[in-house]
């Protein structure tokens, strides 16, 4: 009888393990099935600009010559078709004259589009408030210290950038994606020194003061502490000098956590959830001490504390008046 009971319990525990397994199977996005209207046309460009080397017929030498592609002109076609701009033909943004090969030398003078050339004043993009983003960007240390050298493209490569926060259900993924944008320069001296002669500080050393550094790097984005939040934009772009970075823990670790206006801006609602947790949106991915309090647990604990304290006071009072 007892053995049977153990067997039943064993089977129950075994199947429970399956019930508790997290859902690792990510929903397949349509990204893998994207077939761009201009894919064939674009493939002509990718045949050279998607490779480390390219070939051309050198009429002077009368033979086919192999040349190395400038690394800044290489576009990863896989990344491109996963990016926000995947629907575009290369020649929507670059001159139609690029259709001719070898390209004309004149095309080197072609001005590059800036983000607002397409995104400004368009109702379709009104919710992103690109005009405000640009204004904030110009106030940022990136723009003010490096003037025109620093453009939107430094962080948002038009050939690969994709919005994440609103579309990626896996928060860890989009935090990593966003942080890698910063680390592309701040953890790579060769890129960092394209814009400055300053020594690139070691991010791990400069953040030594942060308790549980690895967890912080995984759970929040650099911009949470290094930007000034603007309520009119979904993502803060006013990157402040390092002296102005937030180092006060309670700014995030409190009920009115700053994370609600930044990282959790998309999920945030003012209402307390049915489970009683404040700022429950955070609980999907983490637990922020000070920001995630449970209303019911608070009420029960305060109630118990008051009852115990009152009980002891009455007991002490009776002991004193009975003088025992």
């Amino acid at each position: 009888m007892k053995r049977n009971l153990y067997r039943i319990l064993g089977v129950f525990i075994f199947f429970s393990l399956f019930l508790f397994q997290p859902n690792y199977i990510l929903a397949q996005t349509d990204q893998t099935q994207r077939i761009a209207e201009y894919a064939e046309d674009n493939q002509l460009c990718f045949s050279c600009h998607g490779q480390a080397n390219y070939y051309y017929q050198n009429d002077w030498m009368g033979k086919k010559v192999k040349e190395r592609m400038n690394p800044y002109f290489i576009v990863d076609s896989v990344e491109y078709y996963q990016s926000n701009h995947w629907k575009f033909s290369c020649r929507d943004c670059h001159s139609a004259d690029y259709g001719e090969f070898p390209h004309s030398g004149q095309l080197r003078m072609e001005p590059k589009f800036a983000c607002l050339d397409c995104h400004a004043g368009d109702e379709q993009y009104a919710k992103f408030n690109f005009e405000q983003i640009e204004e904030d960007f110009h106030k940022s240390v990136h723009s003010s210290k490096h003037s025109e050298d620093f453009t939107c493209w430094m962080c948002h490569n038009p050939h690969s950038y994709k919005i994440n926060a609103r579309t990626n259900e896996n928060m860890a993924d989009f935090i990593q994606y966003d942080n890698e944008i910063c680390l592309t320069c701040h953890a790579d001296i060769s890129k960092y020194q394209l814009l400055t002669t300053m020594e690139n500080p070691n991010v791990l050393v400069t953040h030594n003061w942060l308790p549980n550094q690895v967890l912080h790097f995984k759970k929040v984005r650099c911009i949470e502490c290094h930007t000034q939040i603007n309520d009119n934009t979904l993502v803060a772009h006013n990157v402040r000098p390092k002296e102005e970075a937030i180092k006060l823990c309670v700014v995030c670790h409190s009920k009115e956590s700053r994370l609600l206006a930044s990282l959790y801006k998309y999920q945030f609602t003012n209402e307390r959830s049915i489970t009683g947790f404040s700022n429950e949106a955070m609980l999907e991915e983490s637990y922020v001490i000070g920001a995630n309090r449970n209303y019911y647990l608070n009420v029960i604990s305060i109630g118990l504390f008051v009852l115990v304290f009152l009980g002891l006071c009455i007991h002490a009072f009776l002991r004193i008046i009975i003088k025992h």
Binding site: L248, C249, V250, V251, H253, S254, K255, E256, I289, G290, R293
Partner: peptide, 10 residues
């Protein structure tokens, strides 16, 4: 202090 952290009342 951590659980009930408050910038106004540390």
């Amino acid at each position: 202090s951590m659980q009930y952290s408050d910038p106004a009342l540390p």
